[in-house]
Amino acid sequence: MLLVRTAVLGGGALRCRPVGCRSAASYVQGQSPDPRIREYFYYVDHQGQLFLDDTKVKNFVTCFKDKQFLVFFFSRLRSNQSGRYEKDFPFLSMCGRERNFLRCDDRPMVFTHLLQSSGGPRGLGGDQELLSFCGGGEKLAVPFRPEALYMHPTSGRVYHPCLERVGGVGLVRSALAIELSPFFVYPPETSQSGQPSHFLWGGEKHTLTNELAAFFPVAEEGSEERQLE
């Protein structure tokens, strides 16, 4: 992993203020708090792009694009319970003696593509359809459950269940959410600005479970609305 970063690591002490966090963390990329231990700091945006946290201009040019690296990084990602940077970098990917801390714009897992795992026309449902996250293709994916899609009532962002080790919820990136949006069905008495009740997929009308609503406390809705302004 160190070789992948060599060309883009900067030096010097840094202070960063993670999006949505109330405090800042001081760090040096590649710092060694203990013998033979190295620490690096990353950020994933709401499009699922991974960056070194201190990258000044974050776009497609500066994000990590090597699939092998992305699979390696995200397959090891867990909740940060290391006792270091837990508030500002809530997630941690361990690589031997390397600690890779991660913060995110919204959720650490961002679904970027809807894939077919074993052929068949799109929309048939079942385990043939996968939601892939963070640039990893089929190696970073979960089965697509159309009934479990959840549209946040305040932000309008769309979410889908993800791995429990990173919080159980993944964000659907905006491009994919727009692609899926025509299949949401709204109650007759509400407009499309309200909460959808069903999702049309594979010739079926799926009743939305809204099971992910429990992950978004009412207090968070007001906070999220302020962030989007």
Rank of each mutant, 00 (worst) to 15 (best):
D66Q: 07
D54P: 00
C95T: 07
G30F: 10
K139I: 00
A141W: 03
L200A: 09
K139S: 07
C21I: 03
E86G: 01
L52K: 01
T112F: 11
F111D: 00
R99F: 15
G137L: 03
E86Q: 12
W201Y: 09
V218K: 04
P146R: 09
R84Y: 11
D53V: 03
Y27G: 11
K65D: 04
Q47H: 14
S117C: 12
Y43V: 11
Q116S: 15
T190Y: 09
F74H: 14
I178K: 13
A214F: 03
F69A: 03
Y42C: 00
D54V: 08
C63P: 05
E129Y: 03
L149S: 02
Y186M: 06
F183W: 13
V142E: 08
G12F: 02
V110R: 02
V172K: 02
G10T: 09
F64P: 00
Y159Q: 10
P153R: 07
L200E: 13
L180A: 03
S181L: 11
R107I: 03
C21G: 04
R165H: 07
V172Y: 06
P33G: 07
R76W: 02
S197C: 13
C134F: 02
S132T: 07
Y150K: 00
V218A: 14
E147Y: 05
D53H: 06
Q192G: 04
F60M: 13
A24G: 01
S197W: 06
E138C: 03
C16L: 15
Q31C: 12
E189N: 11
V71R: 09
E129K: 10
R173D: 13
A213T: 13
A13Q: 12
P143Q: 13
S79D: 15
R103Q: 10
C162T: 09
H160T: 12
T190D: 15
Q192T: 09
A175S: 15
G123Q: 03
V19N: 05
K65N: 01
V110C: 08
G12E: 08
L200Y: 10
P188R: 04
L212Y: 06
T112E: 12
S82A: 13
G83Y: 07
P146T: 07
C63S: 06
A175P: 04
F69D: 06
K58S: 09
G156K: 15
L115F: 10
A24Q: 08
G167E: 08
F74E: 02
T207F: 07
E220D: 11
V166G: 07
